[in-house]
Simulated scan of single mutants.
Amino acid sequence: MATPAGTTQKAWRVVRRGSPSQALKFQNDLPIPTPSPGSVLVKIQAAALNPVGYKLMKLLPNLIAGRPHVTEHDVAGVIANGNGTEFKEGDSVLGLVDNSKKQGALAQYAVIPAEGLVHIPPTLSLAQAAGLSLVGLTAVQGLVDILHIKAGQRIFINGGSSAVGALAIQIAKTEKCHVTTSCSGGKIEGVKSLGADEILDYTASPLWNQLSSATTPYQFDAIFDAVGTTALFTHSKAYLSPKGTYVSIVPEMNGVFGTLWGLFETSCRPTWLGGTPRTFKFFSMKPSKKNLQYLADLAREGKLTVPVDSEYAMEDTLKAYERLMTGHANGKVVVNITH
């Protein structure tokens, strides 16, 4: 049964600033929320972790972060209360939880707007479904909605082995683009299996140098940066078409001064002061049922999969964060929610 047996639930809440081991507290007495009109109650079965989760735990003070609150966004589960929406009890769904309501993915239940959910395609496991929403929405919005990629274009995706990069490669190939990407030498075979046409090992030498000095010059129609590498943009005149656009999902994190300088170089420095004569755009992912359905349809058609690195029990959530924080996860790190 998806309907709650009681009125309280288990969850991991962020109660203070710090690393996950310092900031998170496991509680078993939180009230199960009641859905408002247009929303449903989801019985969460799996939750995927994202680097932004632990980074915000470390960075933001309690007042700004609105603590305490349940952490993480990505969920897969079943409808416990359809509340008069398109969904009925027992439907398998995936989507995002809004932390601003003090809710999060690392809980047994969450109230989510029906507009923020889609049915899980049968081609995805529960763990894969949990890991799709945030990284998939980021990839499709960057490539399709902002860069407007088209068949035949040559695209460079920085960070092909990252969770966002892995989805971006598959989406770009579905749109019939030629994809060049980057990863470390040890991950080349895995990235190649996603469909990338050409792969550069970023540990061999700086990517901008490899691209600038290639025997056959590169000329990309667009660059999608899933890592945040300032130098890749500042040297892009050599390999990004004059009409091309460089899109990044994050700034390069290099201490306070280094990060601010990178933002100046990419977003503020005019060309007459030595700025790069190419279009640069930052963007933040926004929930979108249309985009989420696009991703689910690709998965249903066998054109998209979600790499999963590892799965952990709910009580081992801190170990799951330890794995994620190594930076060596080959796919999503997923927590299975117990009931």
Rank of each mutant, 00 (worst) to 15 (best):
M1E: 12
T7F: 01
T7D: 13
T7S: 13
K10H: 01
R13H: 02
R16N: 10
G18S: 07
N28F: 00
I32K: 09
P33M: 14
P35D: 11
V42P: 13
Q45W: 00
A47I: 05
A48I: 01
A48T: 07
A48C: 07
L49T: 10
V52S: 14
K55N: 14
M57K: 08
N62L: 14
G66A: 06
G66K: 07
P68V: 10
T71C: 04
D74L: 02
A76F: 12
G77Y: 03
V78W: 05
A80G: 15
A80S: 14
N81F: 05
N83S: 06
F87W: 07
G95D: 08
N99C: 07
K102I: 00
G104C: 07
A114I: 03
V118T: 13
V118A: 10
H119T: 15
L126H: 08
A127F: 03
A127T: 03
A129F: 03
S133V: 01
L134S: 02
G136V: 00
L137F: 00
L143G: 00
Q153K: 00
I157C: 03
G160A: 11
A166F: 02
C183G: 11
G185L: 08
I188N: 01
V191Y: 04
K192L: 05
K192V: 01
K192S: 11
E198M: 07
I199V: 14
I199T: 01
D201A: 04
D201H: 08
N209D: 14
Q210I: 08
T215F: 05
T216E: 15
P217E: 12
I223Q: 09
A226D: 12
V227F: 02
G228N: 10
L232D: 04
L240S: 06
K243R: 13
Y246K: 11
S248W: 09
E252H: 14
G255T: 14
G258V: 12
L260W: 14
L263G: 05
S267F: 06
R269G: 09
R269D: 06
P277E: 07
R278I: 03
R278W: 09
L292M: 15
A296N: 13
A299N: 02
K303F: 04
K303W: 01
Y312I: 02
Y312F: 15
T317K: 12
A320Q: 07
T326W: 01
A329Y: 01
H339P: 10
